[in-house]
Design a binder for these strands. Sequence first.
DNA 1: TTCCACTGTTCGGCATATGCGAACGTGATC
DNA 2: GATCACGTTCGCATATGCCGAACAGTGGAA
Lengths: 271, 271
Amino acid sequence: MTVWVVDWPMTGDDDGPRTLKTVTTAARVIDAVRAHDEIGASALAEYLDISKSTAHIHLTTLEQNGFLVQTDSGYRLAFKFTVLGEYVRNRSPLYRYGKPEVDDLAEETNQYTHIVTEENGTGINLYQVKGDTSIEGEYQTEKIQRRDHLHYTAAGKAILAALPRERVEEIVDNHGLPAQTANTITDRETLFDELDRVRERGFAYNDEEEIDGFRAIGAPIRDTDDRVRGSLSISGPTSIMQGERYRETLPERVTRSANVIEVNINMNSQS
Amino acid sequence: MTVWVVDWPMTGDDDGPRTLKTVTTAARVIDAVRAHDEIGASALAEYLDISKSTAHIHLTTLEQNGFLVQTDSGYRLAFKFTVLGEYVRNRSPLYRYGKPEVDDLAEETNQYTHIVTEENGTGINLYQVKGDTSIEGEYQTEKIQRRDHLHYTAAGKAILAALPRERVEEIVDNHGLPAQTANTITDRETLFDELDRVRERGFAYNDEEEIDGFRAIGAPIRDTDDRVRGSLSISGPTSIMQGERYRETLPERVTRSANVIEVNINMNSQS
DNA sequence: TTCCACTGTTCGGCATATGCGAACGTGATC
DNA sequence: GATCACGTTCGCATATGCCGAACAGTGGAA
C-alpha cells in the first residue's frame, strides 16, 4: 500500500540528503499557517508539536522576512507570496504564450479553459478562463489555488502520456491514484493502457473522472526536444460535451490551440 | 539621510527581536534566486558571501520543501509560490469583491484599471485590467510582479491619505521618497500637504509623478472601522486624461466603484 | 586523447545558534 | 479582582548549522 502526501510532497526531514532542520520547520510553519488561514503561536506549537517559544520565534522570523503578516488574531501568509508567485508565473513561457490562446479558446467555445503544468508530480493550474456556459461558483477560482493529481484530469493525463514511463511510475508511487468519482482510474495498469490511447489519439479525455457530470479534453504542449511543458484543456458539463462536438470538433480545436502555443514557445525559445 | 530598501523591507538579522539566523539566510536565498532567475550553488555562495557547502544545503533543503526546482543549469523558484500566492490573493476580500468592479470599470472607461493594497509600507498590485486605449507592452504584466512605493501613484497616495500620520512617517522613514519623474513628490512636507488635499477631495491624483505622460486617479477603499484596505485606481496617457473627464467624470466614476467595493466587502464582512 | 578549471557534492569538527522549559507580562472573561 | 489563555522573554544545554577541505563529475581547450 502506497501512501500519498496530500499537500506538498516530501516535507523534508527524510533520511535522504542532509537538510536544514530549521528551514524545514519554517516550511512546515508556512504550510500550517496556510492550512489554518490564520494562526497564533500557541495553536501553532500544538499543531506542529513544537514548543511555544519555538513557534513564536519562527513566526516572528518569517514575519521579519516578509512571508507572514501579523493581524489582530494571529499570523497569515503575506502578499509577498502573491508577488513572487506572479513573478514565477510570468517567468513561464507556457503562461506567457498560453494565456492569449486560452482567452481566444474560451471566448470561441464559451467553455471553461485552462492551462496546466506539472511540478513534483502534481498539476499546477497556471491560468484559466471560464466561458459563459461553464460552471458557476467557487469551483473555478479555487482550482488555481491548489495542486491536483494528474490522473483524473484531461490536462493531467495529457501530461502523463507525454512523460517517460518511469517518471509516471515514480509519480504514482509518490501520490497514488485516489478516486474522485466512480469513473476515476485507480488501477495502475488501467492508467497505462489509457495513457497509450492518449498517445495514439494525441489528446486526452476526462469522462466524469474528476467531477460527476463533467467532461474535459486536454492536449499536450511540447518542447522542441519533445519534453512536455504542460497542457491545454477545456471542460464543461456532459450536456454540451457530447456527440461530434465531443468526439471531433472540440478535440481538433483544442489540439490546434495547443500547437499554436507550442510554436510560439519554441519560436521565442530560450530556457 | 534615510536609506531605503529596494526589494523587501527588513531582511532580518537586526539587533531587534531574536530571530532565526538560518531561516533568514533561507529567505535571502529565495530573494537571491528570484533576483537571478536561476542560480547555482557556487554563484549563490559568492553572491550571499556564504560557503559553498552552506549554499548547497540551503538550496537542497528549499528544494525538498518545494520552494525551488532544480533545472539543468541551477535552481529557480517553484510554482509553489504561484499556488500559495493565488491562495493569498483570493483570501483577500479586497480582491474577491474588487475584481468584478475593476472589470466593469475597465470595460466602461477603456482604461488601465487596478486595485492596490498596502503591506509593509509598499503597494501590492492585487489585480489589474488594461482597457483598450491604455498603454501596451510589458509594463502591465510586470507591474503585478513587483512592489511599488506608495508616494508616486494615485492608488498609493489614496492609501497614504487614509493612514494615520505616524504610520506615514514610519513608511517614509523606511522607504524614503525616491523620484520617478520630475513631478514625483520627494519632499516630506509637500507630501503631507498633498495628502491633506487628497483627504479633502476624497480621491488622489497622480499627475505624471510615476511615468512621464501618464496620469491616474485613485480612491480609497475602507473598512467599517474606517481603516483602509486598499484603493482603486485608473490611469492612462494625459491625452485622454484631461479636461472635465480628468477633473470630474472619471473621479466620480472611480469613487463610485470604490464605494461599491466597500459596500460589498463590508456586507460580507468577516476579517 | 589528456589536462585543467569549473561546477556540484560529501564529510567531520567546532563554535554557536537553536529549541526547550520556565518565568514574566498582558489582556480578556467570569 | 482572580483566573485563564495567550504572547513574549530569558538562560541554558545540546543539537545542529556553518565552514574548510577533500572528492566527484562535467565540459572545454590544447
